[in-house]
Nucleic acid binder design. Sequence first.
DNA 1: AGCTCATGGCGAG
DNA 2: TCGCCCTGAGCTG
Length: 261
Amino acid sequence: MARDLTEAFGGRPVRVSSPQGRFAVEASLLDGTVLDQAEAYGKHLFVEFDPSRIIGIHLGLIGKFRILAGSEPTPPAPPRLRISAGGVAAELRGPQVCQLIGDAERRAVMARLGADPLRADADPELAWRRIHGSSRSVASLLMDQGVTAGVGNIYRAEVLFRHRVLPHLPGRELSRLKWNRIWADLVALMELGVRDARVDTVRPEHTPEAMGREPRVDRHGGEVYVYRRAGQACLVCGRGVRTEVLEGRNLYWCPRCQRRS
DNA sequence: AGCTCATGGCGAG
DNA sequence: TCGCCCTGAGCTG
């Protein structure tokens, strides 16, 4: 989204408004000014205006930020934030956070975030130290934005499946080798996700074409091994995919493919 | 039409 | 741990 916003509006004066109303005062302050660029860190989005005024955005669970070209139909609900220029409009609905901040506040947010697999400046060593010294489960640690920033419920379940790691394994029992492989995989998977704008985690040898099965595209639009497949047969071994609520979020894993290792 | 749940995270208790 | 924020999609009826 940051890349798309920068491409659509970067370096240009933009119209900024809040049809829904809750960002109206801030929007009027930015209206007509130049949008420099947008940047993402973990799940946070920073839309930067000249001079150093920033819209800090977090979509949360239900927020959506869409870029509509020309006369594409717009959803019925009025957007919290609307940015437009030259016939292109970006509309934000249902965000957990949308606020006008300065550079100091942005730095404070970034300072408490862990390693973001999508960023060149990511520090996987920092994440390793947190994981290696923790009795918490790797499933919990991967969802902790202070450990790995940007990893969410789908990538958590899928990367643990791909590396045959039981989600309940304490962080301190994860080997360095496993972590190195998991981190490299997160980088590859999430870059693929950005490229295709969907979450796909199934290896070539397990794709529907290779296995002679029907595609099982999840509602989020991608092909996955275990996420939201509770009770269905594991794509690799056929056992029923298990699920449980962990810290308020649904966790999925295969009890045969994933072991304490 | 109404209900439930969801790629998340905060504050209260 | 729970309730809540807030929108939309998928279900039921």
